[in-house]
C-alpha cells in the first residue's frame, strides 16, 4: 500500500509540481532576468500613471466612490478634486518607484496610489477590469526581498524573490483559468437549456453580433466572424482550451512564452472583432511572461509539445515516446 502511495506521489511530483525555485535561485542568469523584469515593470507603471495624468478631465456624472476612495465623501470632495489628488499621487508614486523600486516603502506607495486610481476609475457603477492585474501584482511585489543590496543577496532571499515573482505570474494565469472555467460552466448550463453555448458551432458569431450594438464598435474582423460561423468556431475553441489551462504554464514553465504570445494575439483578436482594448494587461503579460526567469534556457519544440496540457500527456505516451531501440 505504502509503495502504491509513494509511486503515485512521485508521479504527482514529476507531473504537477512547479519548477524547483531552490535550484533556480543558484543561477545568476535567472536572478538577473528577474531583477531586470522589475525595472521594466515599474518603468511601465510610470508610463501608465503619465497616461492617466494626461487623460480627460471632463466631469463624469454618477460618481459613486468605491470603498478605497470613500475619503472623497468624508471630505465632501467632488469628482474633479478627487481626480486631481489621485492623479498627482499616482504619478508621483510611480515616478518615485522607478528610482526606488528596490525599497519596500516605494513599492507600498505605488500600490496604494494605483488602488486609488483604479478604484476612482471604477466609481461610476462599472469596474475597470483592465487594471485589476496591475493592482494585484503591485501588491504581491511589495513582498519582494531587497536582493539589490549585496548584503541581502542571500540564497534564502533569492528563493523568496523568485517565489514572489512566481506568485505574481500565478495570479495572472489564474484569472485566465477562471475565465475559461466560467465559459465551461456556462456552456454546460446553456447546453442543458438547449441553447447555443460556448462549445456550439456559431457561438462566436452570436457573441460578436450581440456585442456590436452594446460596444458600438464593429471591429475589422467582425463581419467575417459573423458570416463564417464554422471557421470562427476553431479560434474560439482554442481560446477556451488555452484559457482553461492557463494555470498549467506555472507548472510547465517551458510553455510561458508560447502562452504569452497566444494571449497577446487573443487580445489583438478581441480588438479586431469587438474593438475592446486590453493594452495595460497586454503589456503586463509581456513583462511577466515573454522573458520569464522560469523559462528553461534550452527549450525545444519537442519539449513544448510534450508539456502541453492533455495533448502533451497523450503525445508523451504515444508519438513523443522515446524509441525502445535507443
Amino acid at each position: 500500500m505504502t509503495h502504491i502511495i509513494q509511486k503515485h506521489w512521485l508521479w504527482v511530483r514529476a507531473h504537477l509540481y512547479p519548477p524547483s525555485l531552490t535550484t533556480l535561485a543558484h543561477d545568476n542568469r535567472i536572478m538577473e532576468t528577474a531583477r531586470v523584469m522589475m525595472l521594466y515593470y515599474y518603468s511601465f507603471l510610470l508610463y501608465l500613471s503619465f497616461q492617466y495624468l494626461m487623460s480627460s478631465t471632463s466631469v463624469r456624472p454618477g460618481f459613486e466612490p468605491l470603498w478605497p476612495v470613500a475619503w472623497a465623501t468624508w471630505f465632501s470632495f467632488d469628482y474633479a478634486t478627487t481626480l486631481a489628488l489621485v492623479r498627482t499621487l499616482f504619478f508621483v508614486a510611480a515616478f518615485v518607484s522607478v528610482f526606488f523600486f528596490h525599497t519596500r516603502a516605494a513599492r507600498i506607495l505605488v500600490f496604494l496610489a494605483l488602488v486609488q486610481a483604479h478604484a476612482l476609475e471604477s466609481s461610476f457603477g462599472y469596474i475597470n477590469h483592465q487594471w485589476y492585474m496591475w493592482v494585484y501584482t503591485t501588491l504581491i511585489f511589495v513582498f519582494l526581498p531587497n536582493i539589490w543590496r549585496t548584503e541581502k543577496d542571500t540564497f534564502e532571499n533569492r528563493r523568496l524573490f523568485l517565489l514572489v515573482i512566481w506568485c505574481a505570474q500565478a495570479i495572472v494565469t489564474l484569472s485566465y483559468t477562471m475565465a475559461g472555467l466560467n465559459k465551461m460552466i456556462a456552456a454546460y448550463i446553456q447546453n442543458l437549456a438547449g441553447e447555443i453555448n460556448a462549445l456550439s458551432i456559431g457561438n462566436f458569431s452570436y457573441i460578436v453580433a450581440d456585442w456590436i450594438p452594446k460596444l458600438q464598435h464593429e471591429g475589422l474582423l467582425a463581419p467575417w466572424v459573423i458570416n463564417n460561423p464554422e471557421w470562427a468556431w476553431f479560434p474560439f475553441m482554442t481560446l477556451v482550451f488555452v484559457q482553461t489551462f492557463s494555470w498549467w504554464v506555472m507548472i510547465r514553465t517551458s510553455l510561458q512564452r508560447v502562452w504569452a504570445v497566444f494571449i497577446f494575439a487573443f487580445h489583438i483578436g478581441t480588438y479586431l472583432t469587438m474593438g475592446i482594448e486590453f493594452n495595460p494587461l497586454m503589456m503586463l503579460i509581456i513583462f511577466l511572461f515573454l522573458n520569464s526567469p522560469f523559462i528553461p534556457e534550452k527549450t525545444s519544440l519537442k519539449r513544448i509539445l510534450s508539456d502541453l496540457p492533455l495533448f502533451g500527456l497523450i503525445g508523451r505516451y504515444t508519438l513523443l515516446r522515446p524509441s525502445k531501440n535507443h
Binding site: S122, A179, A186, I207
Partner: peptide, 27 residues
Amino acid sequence: LGFMTSFAQKGEVYPFFSWSLFSYTPN
C-alpha cells in the same frame, strides 16, 4: 472568493472578480 462574487448583486465585489467575461452565449 473570485467565484463567490458571481453571486453578488453586481457580479463582483471590489477587488474580487470571477472573471466571467463573455461566458454566456447570447441567444
